[in-house]
Write a protein that binds this DNA or RNA. Structure first.
Lengths: 268, 268
DNA sequence: CGCAAAGTTGAGCGTCCTCAAGCAGCGTGG
DNA sequence: CCACGCTGCTTGAGGACGCTCAACTTTGCG
């Protein structure tokens, strides 16, 4: 297990305080009591508004297509209408890091605003459609239609929250728990968009998952096998990319359990 | 060492390709040839503009002061006029994670826009001054003074780039290299703001640094001792919080070296 | 059918965590 | 004044988690 404290005050809680919040604890969006419908309607409203008030270029993409490259001149933001995408941060020394996973309604390309060029590669992991929106046109449209600006800022704000939650998982969870949290996050993302979560199809290789989670593909494979043995997930016969999650809350409980392996919760 | 690949194509470069980019490679802002003056002037211009076109409440803070708490209702963004701050992500289960370090000119509170409440605690690590800017007033001011909107978006964009670079370091660097990269980042941040970098004062305990970097305080301490033994940094006698970095580029080279420990660079 | 890519599993080992002891700086109080 | 406690830092010993290397199986495609 990794560290969970910064100062003495942060030391693992004496278990009593931690456990009552056990299954409720989820890094993402703790504030939102009913995230699914709210997120779904937010996304729908954003897409509707965009169609109405700003010029859009639609682009259909297939697995492996790159929407934009790191270093390419920034002109447009991209909104996912359907499909599933990853963003990859490329360091000058050749390191590659998957830094984000993106679903319907997510915006892509914010990191290009500051420097005038994109900072990541955005790659499609499935067939889908993105809406290309020129940044200057978007800003102009925001001036005429103020709610759109709010939507833009909300999207950027959510992006940061997600990044921070990634950091939290990365720094505080064991490898097994990180994989579990990854599945939980994926299921949650689907749920928020009104999609099925009992049966999800991972559109990433073990190596990609491992890169995203900061571990090797072998460790990912072992963690998935362990979760399967523990009946927290199940694989579809034929194809280890399909994962069933019978009970997301059990998955959350597993993550919590791995945080405090020492304490028998009842004692003191 | 952690993994650096996602697929076979990502496997550690055969050393020849990696080494020629050795000392130039820095995760942050590879695009900007001369970041220091550009960043400094950008910050100065932003602060000037803010003073001119939007109502500001100034607040002087001291070590340990919290600007806002996670969960608190969001109304204002905060811009650092002086001082140094950290943001802490609090999970429902008690985990605490330092997710960001912030210097003069940085904005704080973006993560509150989406949900109507802040997602982190922002804590002062030194005496300083923040400018409190009501979000609604800021948006109104942006309507009248469009460049301000650009500055806002630039700040948000930079924030995301920084978060991604943190992810990259966390996932691809060893503990020693992560500490070195932390010092490099700190020095770079000071340099961009026109401050001295040969002698920097860490305003964090080993435990805080460790939390931020995803390791224990002991590991931080050992890494610093090692860097000191290797003459890449030096401690001021009296006080292990003051660090001298005689040569930042040597520090970068050290980080690069730890990426490809296998290859004698000349071969092949 | 054969080959390549993806995935699983095992054995061995290294990095980093855990636990522990000791030291240094510092404010408090006897 | 020094004892005392407290916090922060360093260093060591031992162990665990996860990486490395390797062999093998399964899946998919030409």
């Amino acid at each position: 297990m990794l560290n969970t404290e910064t100062t003495a005050a942060f030391r693992p809680l004496p278990s009593g305080t931690a456990t009552h919040a056990a299954w409720t604890a989820q890094p993402a969006e703790p504030r939102d009591a009913a995230p699914a419908p709210r997120t779904a309607s937010r996304i729908a409203e954003t897409l509707r508004t965009l169609q109405d008030v700003v010029p859009i270029t639609r682009r259909v993409v297939h697995v492996g297509d790159t929407i934009y490259h790191s270093g390419e001149q920034f002109r447009s933001l991209h909104v996912i209408n359907s499909g599933f995408f990853k963003t990859i941060n490329l360091a000058a020394d050749g390191r590659e890091q998957v830094v984000g996973l993106h679903f319907k309604g997510d915006w892509l390309g914010f990191d290009g605003i500051a420097g005038g060029q994109y900072g990541c590669d955005a790659v499609a992991m499935d067939t889908g459609e993105v809406w290309i929106i020129r940044y200057d046109a978007l800003i102009a449209a925001c001036a005429k239609h103020p709610p759109l600006l709010g939507m833009l800022h909300t999207a950027m704000s959510l992006e940061m929250t997600r990044d921070r939650n990634s950091l939290l998982s990365l720094c505080t969870l064991s490898a097994d728990a990180r994989v579990a949290d990854f599945l939980r996050y994926w299921a949650e993302s689907l749920a928020q968009r009104g999609l099925r979560t009992d049966q999800i199809t991972l559109r990433m290789t073990r190596a990609e998952i491992g890169n995203y989670l900061g571990m090797t593909l072998e460790t990912v494979s072992r963690a998935l096998s362990k979760l399967s043995r523990d009946k927290l997930i199940a694989f579809n016969q034929k194809g280890r990319r399909e994962v069933q999650i019978p009970d997301v809350r059990a998955l959350c409980a597993y993550i919590q359990r791995s945080l405090a392996p020492a304490g028998s919760a009842v004692l003191q």
